[in-house]
Design a protein around this nucleic acid. Structure first.
Length: 203
DNA sequence: CTAACGATTCGCT
DNA sequence: GCGAATCGTTAGT
């Protein structure tokens, strides 16, 4: 219990090492993705994710056990950060899941500002609080200060981590759809492995 | 070494 | 709705 009376618990290794990446993905909804750089805390409640599986999922960078310098961290034990550059501009943040050797990951696509909203806006160069601060995988990474040099970071540490802040969504509130931007994956693009909530969250 | 392209975003039309 | 921005990764020569 902290000063506000809210129960907050950092997720432990057991959360990330589970075998079902889609289960982990749905359970990440409502959790707080937190960063602390130079003593400055920012956090957002996760409202949209996508699951990627290293076996039989052509949308996954580690599909068919493809091992490169970039995909290497996906083969680590769950609970690491997989951050990569997309379109030369955007730093996309993923949570590595499953046990060592099984390369699964969850892409975090949207968070709602929870703590440090001012700093998140500053990082995004946004002055109007009604504008989009952290919706979209590139936008949320920028708002939270996550960059590719955080590749491989342990999420059990105190730089980037995820907390249970006592917020969860009902099955009815969790929507599914095809994953965004993976049309190249053929039949695997049809999988409903994107999970999101449209519940209003204002802090 | 070369070249194509991407798990995107933003501004403009 | 459309297109530019922008560069690391990847596969192929």
């Amino acid at each position: 219990m902290n000063g506000t009376g809210m129960l907050r618990m950092k997720l432990t290794g057991d959360f990330y090492t589970r075998a079902d990446v889609n289960l982990v993905a749905t359970e990440l909804l409502g959790k707080a993705l937190c960063t602390r750089f130079d003593g400055r805390l920012t956090a957002g409640i996760i409202t949209e994710v996508e699951a990627y599986c290293g076996r039989d999922d052509k949308a996954c960078h580690a599909n068919n056990n493809r091992r490169t310098a970039r995909t290497e961290v996906m083969y680590h034990q769950g609970g690491k950060a997989y951050v990569y550059l997309c379109y030369g501009i955007h730093h996309l943040f993923n949570v590595v899941t499953n046990v060592e050797g099984l390369a699964d990951a969850v892409l975090v696509r949207s968070v709602v500002p929870f703590e440090g909203k001012e700093l998140m806006m500053k990082r995004r160069n946004i002055a109007d609080p009604r504008k989009n601060i952290s919706r979209g995988p590139g936008a949320l990474s920028q708002a939270l200060g996550i960059k590719t040099h955080h590749y491989g970071l342990d999420l059990l540490g105190d730089t980037i981590w995820i907390e249970d802040v006592g917020r969860c969504f009902s099955v009815e509130e969790i929507k599914t759809s095809r994953r965004i931007g993976v049309d190249y994956a053929g039949e695997d693009a049809e999988r409903l492995w994107r999970y999101y909530v449209e519940v209003p969250l204002i802090f």
